[in-house]
């Protein structure tokens, strides 16, 4: 399986996806609502993307971007799936049913960025205290006591 083949295959499962090849790996941006079905197709379809090695979020001040790094243990090609979510009330479908590692990684994103993962089995704070207010990794997070500005 080569990068070219992946690129040809993607539109067949997600016609609305935007492909971007500038980086090291193929970047696929899709709508948050399509994420779950797209991810299912990636994992169970021809690509066999069974290894989710990184889930994170990027705050672009106007919106948040969920970033999923996927790979396959069979052909070792990696792809990056991105989904832009609304910053005010971020919501996205959970992938913890497909990759078990997503459970913890999404919990981390949940408390650090405030993204609400729908249908997550156990969505609560993993690292921060329960009464912690705010989302520390967002760009506008301010904590005058504990944060030192360089």
């Amino acid at each position: 399986m080569t990068n070219e083949e992946i690129k040809e295959y993607i539109p067949s499962i997600a016609p609305n996806a935007i492909l971007d090849e500038t980086g090291e790996w193929l970047n696929i941006t899709i709508e948050p609502s399509e994420l779950k079905s797209f991810a299912t197709a990636l994992k169970e379809g021809k690509l066999q993307m069974n290894y989710l090695f990184c889930v994170t979020c990027v705050d672009w001040k106007t919106h948040l971007t969920m970033v999923y790094h996927l790979s396959a243990t069979t052909h070792r090609q990696s792809i990056v799936v991105k989904a832009n979510v609304n910053r005010e009330a971020p919501e996205i479908e959970t992938l913890s049913g497909l990759w078990k590692t997503a459970n913890f990684l999404e919990r981390e994103v949940f408390e650090m960025f405030g993204v609400n993962f729908l249908n997550h089995p156990d969505l609560r704070k993993l690292i921060l205290e329960d009464d912690f207010k705010g989302y520390p990794l967002r760009k506008d997070f301010e904590d005058p006591i504990n944060m030192i500005k360089l």
Binding site: C54, T56, V58, D59, T101, N103
Partner: peptide
């Protein structure tokens, strides 16, 4: 994982640590 805006500091940096996944 680094997202760079072209400046001297990263815009977003994410460390994918092995222990985190192993613990899960």
């Amino acid at each position: 994982y680094v997202v760079s805006e072209g400046g001297t500091t990263p815009h977003r940096i994410k460390f994918r640590s092995p222990g985190f996944s192993n613990l899960s």
